[in-house]
Design a protein around this nucleic acid. Sequence first.
DNA 1: CTGACTGCAAACGTTTTGCACGGTA
DNA 2: TACCGTGCAAAACGTTTGCAGTCAG
Lengths: 134, 134
Amino acid sequence: MDSQLLLQQFHLKVTPQRLEIVNLLQIKGHISIEDLFVFLQNKFPSISLATIYKNINKMCQKGFLSEVKIPDTKNVYELTKEDHAHIVCTQCGTILDIDIDISTTLSDVKNTTKFNIVSSSVVFEGICPNCMKI
Amino acid sequence: MDSQLLLQQFHLKVTPQRLEIVNLLQIKGHISIEDLFVFLQNKFPSISLATIYKNINKMCQKGFLSEVKIPDTKNVYELTKEDHAHIVCTQCGTILDIDIDISTTLSDVKNTTKFNIVSSSVVFEGICPNCMKI
DNA sequence: CTGACTGCAAACGTTTTGCACGGTA
DNA sequence: TACCGTGCAAAACGTTTGCAGTCAG
């Protein structure tokens, strides 16, 4: 989707910096603060980390972005989409979205724990096909 | 299991501070650095955070401890045991271990992604039965 | 025109490091 | 005894905050 529209839908003012942040998120899929900073410096040599943090935080508050916590790695951010799992290559760091059906697991867990489950975070770690060749 | 034996099995020198760290881990199940610090100060008023970090890091390196990353919360540590999932109450912070069978999901993911999966991290979030009463 | 956004600098909380001393094996 | 662990202080990070100038709506 168009980055500008996306920002407007969430009532965020459209600035060049924000447009580029959203573009990078669309292109990269998952990106860390540090990587965002490096990429943004191409277009905005004087961009500040504070700007990035403020924007990321605001976008997360709006539900526009989601934070993905991955064991032994920096957190990354992605545009919020429907629930899905992640798989990470521990060698090259690649992160992929995967659609899995955990509905039966979910009802199992609900039954045994009596919790009212609101969300779930599923991350698999391993070696991707590319890295296995090497 | 006896804390002293546990330390010796991993070739870690047995010190009073380490014994108490392992005891707390056994009692609490999951504990954050900050909480560890508070509890340890009872027995060791002059204990240093540096000591705790050094020990936790070393124990993680040895595979003795596992770090559990939970969305929107401080990381907690647990004695390493066989693969299991976690469920967290977003209200009171309680963390429970749960045994779920994800073997079929796992083989699905292996087939579709061609990854060689080494480990998985599964965290459910919701409201525990106790907090629901309130 | 007004309020929000940016960039800078400083502050803050967390984690790591270096060193001298003390304790474990 | 030799080495490792501890505690202290300082340093290194990552993140947040306050402020003055600028820009989007």
